[in-house]
Design a protein around this nucleic acid. Structure first.
Length: 419
RNA sequence: GUGGGCGUGGCCAAGUGGUCAAGGCGCCAGGUUGUGGCCCUGGAGAUCGAGGGUUCGAAUCCCUUCGCCCACCCCA
């Protein structure tokens, strides 16, 4: 028996209302903020992600689905969305549009070869937004506001909004030196991961949560204390905007993120429940990325949110789509072969009027057809049999009240209107 | 990649060496002739994840393997 590949999941009909809910809520808010939808391919040239996300990152190093296509080109199923949107921005010359260009996407599949667990999948879906082409901290604030609005509107409560600045190409090298210098004497006491990080990616030393490393991470020099003048100003402006927006953020000096392209602002939104999957959304500024991909220097900010995690948390908090599947307006049942054609015709003509109509399971007893109608929540059952045919009428039964009456064939649609 | 838990019909689930498997949900069909939801009755559906071993005998013990879940890691 075949199963869905490990770490992937079928989204069954019963789940779809949650997806629609998240998708439409996010999309509506994005549109309200002036963002326009973009969809990009599920795979791209492998080098796009090497260049953008970073070769030394875990995501690229060991989590990508990479393959050679039949012409020998290396392709990678996208592990994240930002790089592709930037590629599209460049490819379609969006720099000629009014800047910043505001883009969003929803239900975009992402692929990462992790080991699956709660809230973590090999294929997951993101809702994301990007604002490309403006360096002002007001845009950072707007992105954070939009992210926060989406979570709020969905009905999620008790979220934590963490913000930090990790500097840029100008000040980060200096900061990393300070950081290395600080960790140097403690190296022997660090956990195995941190020993590795010390070499490969010192920034990540900050967010190690191993107890043995706590003494060092807590005392570690802070990024915000080592920003260059421009970054410092940007950071001050950002917190100023966030304050005036009354967003309940807190500064987390240990917040760094896993992609190399982030500069200055980084932020993350976390749900109240403990557990490993801390973030339901995150993002930041990536001023160097467009240039890295071959464009001119272009500042940008964005964020992404995992839809599976959003839905997981909606369920945990008992909030979600307003109502369940309403069922068809009517189920058309028939008795006897003579009525068969009439039933099919009637159902078709009702559908032609835009009504949601289903044919009851043909060839079964009326009892079975009624049972089916009840099980699928049909609001009415329309019954056709010899009696009805001879008089050119149909019997319309209201399934909630059990009342039924006969109406002329031509008046069935009218009889189904909400009473 | 590392560690831990678990795998019984579509779903939930009893049974932990001896009638190859209880029950519930769901599904199907009946409860007289053309009528649902409640109730009653019946039915279909499991070689107990797979392979091997121990034993007179295993869903129940051992090994291997696959899968699922949880945590670490990483991230959404």
């Amino acid at each position: 028996m075949y199963r869905a590949p490990r770490g992937t999941a079928d989204i069954l009909p019963d789940e779809q209302p949650f997806w629609r809910y998240v998708e439409s809520t996010a999309a509506e808010l994005c549109e309200q903020f002036g963002y326009r939808r973009i969809d990009t391919p599920s795979f791209e040239s492998s080098s796009l992600f090497l260049r953008s996300v970073g070769e030394a990152t875990d995501v690229v190093e060991k989590e990508t689905y990479t393959f050679d296509d039949r012409s020998g080109d290396s392709m990678t199923l996208r592990p994240e969305g930002t790089a592709a949107v930037c590629r599209a921005y460049l490819e379609h010359g969006m720099h000629v549009q009014p800047q910043p260009v505001r883009l969003y996407s929803v239900r975009a599949p992402m692929f990462r070869y992790d080991r699956p667990q709660a809230g973590r999948y090999r294929q997951h879906h993101q809702a994301s937004v990007e604002a490309i082409g403006d360096a002002d901290a007001a845009v950072d604030a707007e992105i954070i506001e939009l992210a926060w609005s989406i979570f709020s509107k969905l009905g999620l409560n008790d979220l934590t909004l963490l913000v930090n600045s990790i500097g840029d190409q100008v000040c980060r090298p200096g900061y990393l030196d300070v950081l290395r210098h600080y960790y140097q004497p403690h190296q022997d006491h660090l956990c195995a991961d941190c020993k590795r990080r010390f070499q490969s990616n010192p920034l990540r030393l900050l967010d190690c949560n191993k107890e043995s490393c706590q003494p060092y991470t807590i005392e570690a020099p802070r990024t915000v204390d080592h920003l260059c003048a421009e970054c410092k100003e940007h950071w001050d402006q950002l917190t100023g905007y966030l304050d005036s927006l009354s967003l309940p953020y807190s500064v987390d000096h240990r917040l760094v993120r896993g992609f190399d392209y982030y500069t200055r602002t980084v932020f993350e939104v976390q749900p109240p429940v403990e557990g490993s999957q801390s973030a339901i959304g995150g993002g930041g500024r990536y001023d160097g990325l467009i240039q890295e991909l071959g464009g001119r220097a272009t500042p940008a900010v964005g964020f992404a949110s995992g839809m599976e995690r959003l839905i997981l948390n909606l369920k945990r908090q008992g909030v979600g789509p307003p109502s369940a599947d309403p069922g068809p307006l009517a189920m058309v049942a028939f008795v006897g072969d003579a009525a068969r054609n009439a039933a099919v015709k009637l159902a078709a003509s009702l559908r032609g009027k835009g009504l949601p109509i289903m044919l009851a399971p043909p060839g079964k007893s009326l009892k079975a057809q009624m049972r089916h109608a009840g099980a699928l929540n049909a609001r009415h059952t329309v019954i056709l049999g010899e009696e009805e045919l001879t008089q050119d009428v149909a019997t319309v039964r209201d399934m909630a009240t059990g009342k039924q009456r006969q109406v002329p064939m031509t008046g069935v649609a009218e009889a189904l209107r909400p009473s």
